[in-house]
Amino acid sequence: MRILVTVKFVPDLQSQRSFTDGAVTRTGDDGTMNELDENAVEAALQLREAAGEGEVYALTVGGDDAVAAVRKALQLGVDHALHVADASVAGSDVFGTAKVLAAAVRKVHDEAPLDLVITGMAALDGLTSMLPTALAAELDWSQLTLASGLTIDGATATVVRNLPDAHETVSAPLPAVVSVTDEANTPRYPNFKLIMAARSKPVTTWTLEDLGVDAATVGAAAARTVVVDASPRPPRENRTVVTDTGEGGAALADFLIERGLA
């Protein structure tokens, strides 16, 4: 079983997140691996462990700081870390990012065939959820997205998709791109031994040239969408918090009635 997991470097959810020049501010100080990618790493590790053999790659795209995302994946137990670091990638939209990721996946796949690419269901900074589909289309592999369950039987992958109107079961031949939801599993915590081992594991760094990607087809210049303005929302004004001493419920009701909400 050979699996590649894509991981994204994002600002920590608990940090003061912001925009700089139309792009999400990402720094090593408060950046980390996207939390929902932990489910993707966990799914890959569980498949490797169940198979009793195999290799798991973690792949990220981004500036120098983004290496933190694959380092986190190493701490969780993946075997190899890959980092596409190239200034030309900055400002890419989802389609540019998918193109770069697909080129890196193909490079690994050409050395020895991969069975799966596993991603998280969304990145908690952008949350568009479009990347897994774009990556499957770029690779022209099977698309099994939003999986809350994943099983492999021979050369076929089967997932369960819990959609609002129906729970679907979908099967497709390998290789496949699978995105897993946060219902799929409970991610493990890195243990001390793995954290120590991760320190000495190498991270392979690639440029767009290494991947044969024309820099003009990605990055800000090729992006189909442009952020023209980003600003913090003003905090809510006139907030009231009361402590219930026997009249709290009535006060709540009166507030709703005054605002015409009850």
Partner: peptide, 21 residues
Amino acid sequence: IADFGVVGDLGDVIPQAIARI
């Protein structure tokens, strides 16, 4: 982030709010 908050027990506050409405 609440426009109006009540620090209290749900079992006290919600029934009273329902009754009041």
